Amino acid sequence: MKISLVPLVCTLLIPSAFADEKGGLEKDAAPPAPHALEEGYRGTENARIMTVDHAKTMHDGATISLRGNLIDDQGNDRFVFRDKTGTIHTIIPQSVFDGRTVKPDNMISINGSLDKKVDPPVVRVDMLQK
């Protein structure tokens, strides 16, 4: 019994002794500061940034998150939303406003889905933050 255990223990220990030290994470250099990153995932705040121009290129039914201003009320829950890249039409039911008043100079965030079946495309807003 002792003789059969010795080869087994040796076979388990030898591969780790000859393991190569390459691969994995090398911690020789410090990572860049978060503000110095040029691209890539940088957290939930940056993941939510989207522009009107980018939203217009997305597929029908895509989830949209925009930050900008409501600049025009076209009646029947239809509004024009603008950010630094352009404008897009939105449908915002009164229940989404939840009694809040929004002025054109108020910066707001809207979340909803893109409807490209109509022309021009609209964002059907289901959440508004002031």
Rank of each mutant, 00 (worst) to 15 (best):
V52M: 06
C10K: 01
P121R: 02
K22W: 14
N76S: 15
D115Q: 08
G61P: 12
S95C: 01
H89Q: 13
T57D: 13
L25S: 12
E21V: 12
P31E: 00
M58F: 05
R124S: 10
L5E: 12
G75V: 08
R100T: 01
G68P: 06
M58W: 05
K22D: 13
K2Y: 15
G68R: 01
D53C: 01
R78S: 12
V118G: 13
T90F: 03
R78G: 04
G61Q: 06
N76W: 11
S65E: 04
D53P: 01
V96E: 02
T57P: 01
T85P: 14
V80G: 02
L66I: 06
L37N: 05
A36M: 04
M1H: 09
N69K: 10
A36L: 05
P104E: 02
K116E: 09
V102R: 02
G86K: 05
G24A: 05
A33E: 07
I88P: 01
N111L: 06
D115V: 05
S95K: 10
L13R: 05
L66E: 04
L8S: 13
E26R: 08
D73I: 04
G86Y: 13
P31T: 00
H54Q: 13
T63M: 05
K22Q: 13
V102D: 00
M1K: 04
E26G: 14
P7I: 12
K56R: 15
S109T: 12
A30M: 04
D126H: 13
D126Q: 03
P32H: 03
R48Y: 09
T44I: 04
S65M: 05
V6E: 07
E26D: 15
D119W: 07
N76C: 06
G61V: 06
G68M: 09
D83I: 03
P7M: 08
T44M: 07
S113G: 05
D77W: 03
D77S: 15
P31N: 02
P93D: 09
P34W: 00
M127A: 14
Y41S: 04
H89K: 14
E39T: 10
A62W: 11
I3R: 10
G24L: 05
P32Q: 02
T51C: 08
I49M: 07
K130D: 11
I3F: 15
A55Q: 03
E26M: 01
G40W: 04
R78A: 09
F81W: 03
L25I: 13
E39L: 03
D20G: 03
P32W: 01
A29G: 02
T11Y: 14
P93T: 07
A47G: 14
T63C: 00
H59C: 00
P31H: 03
T51F: 07
P15E: 09
T51D: 03
D119T: 13
G40A: 00
P34C: 02
N106F: 11
A47N: 11
G68Y: 04
T63E: 11
V102W: 00
H89S: 12
N46G: 14
T11M: 15
K103R: 14
L114M: 15
D126Y: 12
G68W: 07
P120A: 04
F18I: 11
I91K: 10
A33W: 02
D28V: 10
V96P: 00
V122L: 08
P31Y: 02
Q129H: 09
Q94K: 10
V9G: 08
M1F: 11
T63Q: 09
D28H: 10
L25N: 12
L114D: 02
M50F: 06
S65N: 08
M58S: 12
